[in-house]
């Protein structure tokens, strides 16, 4: 088992490096313009934020609607921190990473504190209370002096580009994948499946619920920090309820409980509105129409709970080849 896993880790690592080289070549040769590079950064930010929410919705099984609030904490936290330590003249990457971590940790702590009372609730009630907390965060930021309220926060260094956002997204996905495929991840999934049964086999459900929720908030904070250091300007109203809905939409479309599904959905749902720009006002209509069609024909999301994997693909194609081979032999007889 061990060797097989290690081999698949290697293959996936290589595939990522190849993908990265491909992106770089395309950027160098101006195939991907500045405009598209910007969209790509947003794709990577959405991948981070949506996959962190997928941990709560898809793996922990708790519907949370306040993720934009966590993103806002991470964005403001890391932006203020990086502005504060600017005089230390750290190299840009180090500055970015430390401020992202600070923003993430701050979000994780607040996520934990919110999770303690909120996670006593379930289903619709949890959705509403998280929605409420998300709005509370936004309103507080709107009224604080240090965040400059509704004026918006300016003077943030633009530290994010395609390269570092790509690798940060990769690291986040890898960590989430590693957590899900460990004893902690199994404990989290058992809560989604049946909370009472999970308790009955010795899972401390309160602990693992808040653990999942906190990790989810932490990575949402990282995503928010990236957003802040890409936009170089923050407005509290960016992180309103519609932003939370947008993230939930990505998770649902990609498949609740599938990280690779979330990646695909992030690409689709970030690129789609941009591609539809030509339709002007009609684009929102088309956007919702695409979603409705999707929900009719594939309500479980693009990948459901399955994960896309290179190994799986190879196995699948081998099976198909074998099948067609068998058929061909059958034909000869």
């Amino acid at each position: 088992m061990k060797n097989k896993n290690k081999k698949s880790y290697l293959i996936n690592g290589l595939a990522l490096v190849l993908l990265f080289i491909l992106l770089n070549v395309l950027i160098k040769n101006n195939v991907i313009s500045r405009y598209y590079q910007g969209i790509m950064v947003f794709v990577f930010i959405n991948v981070i934020v949506a996959s962190s929410l997928n941990l709560t919705i898809g793996f922990l099984g708790q519907l949370a609607l306040g993720h934009a609030g966590f993103m806002a904490i991470g964005a403001y936290g890391s932006a203020l921190f990086s502005m504060y330590i600017k005089e230390m003249a750290l190299p840009p990457t180090a500055l970015l990473i430390t401020s992202l971590l600070v923003g993430g940790l701050l979000t994780g702590i607040i996520g934990y504190l919110i999770g303690l009372p909120a996670l006593r609730l379930r289903g619709d009630y949890l959705a509403i209370i998280t929605l409420g907390f998300g709005e509370i965060i936004r309103v507080i930021i709107n009224n604080l002096k240090i965040t400059r309220g509704a004026h918006g926060l300016t003077g943030i260094d633009k530290l994010v580009n395609v390269t570092n956002s790509f690798w940060i997204a990769v690291v986040v996905i890898v960590i989430l994948y590693a957590i899900i495929n460990s004893r902690h991840g199994r404990a989290i999934m058992s809560i989604r499946e049946d909370e009472i049964a999970a308790e009955a086999v010795g899972i401390n459900t309160v602990k693992y619920k808040s653990m999942g929720f906190t990790i989810s908030a932490f990575f949402a904070g990282i995503g928010g920090g990236l957003f802040a250091h890409y936009m170089a300007y923050l407005d509290p109203n960016t992180f309103n309820f519609m932003k939370s809905v947008e993230i939930v939409t990505i998770v649902v479309l990609g498949g609740m409980g599938s990280l690779t599904g979330t990646i695909i959905a992030s690409v689709v749902l970030t690129a789609l509105p941009e591609m539809l720009r030509g339709f002007a006002e009609y684009r929102l209509l088309v956007y919702s129409f695409v979603l409705i069609i999707m929900m009719i024909f594939r309500p479980q999301g693009i990948l459901g709970r399955k994960e896309f994997s290179i190994n799986g693909l190879i196995k699948h194609s081998k099976n198909i080849i074998k099948k067609t081979g068998d058929n061909a032999e059958g034909g000869e007889l």
């Binding site: 004893r183 199994r186 404990a187 999934m189 058992s190 499946e193 049946d194 009472i196 049964a197 999970a198 009955a200 086999v201 010795g202 899972i203 709970r305």
Partner: peptide, 18 residues
């Protein structure tokens, strides 16, 4: 009360958590 959408072996492994 099984963990219905998980595999049989994962059901057992979750109980082995402690």
């Amino acid at each position: 009360r099984l963990f219905k959408d998980l595999t049989v072996i994962d059901n057992v492994k979750i109980a082995y958590h402690k």
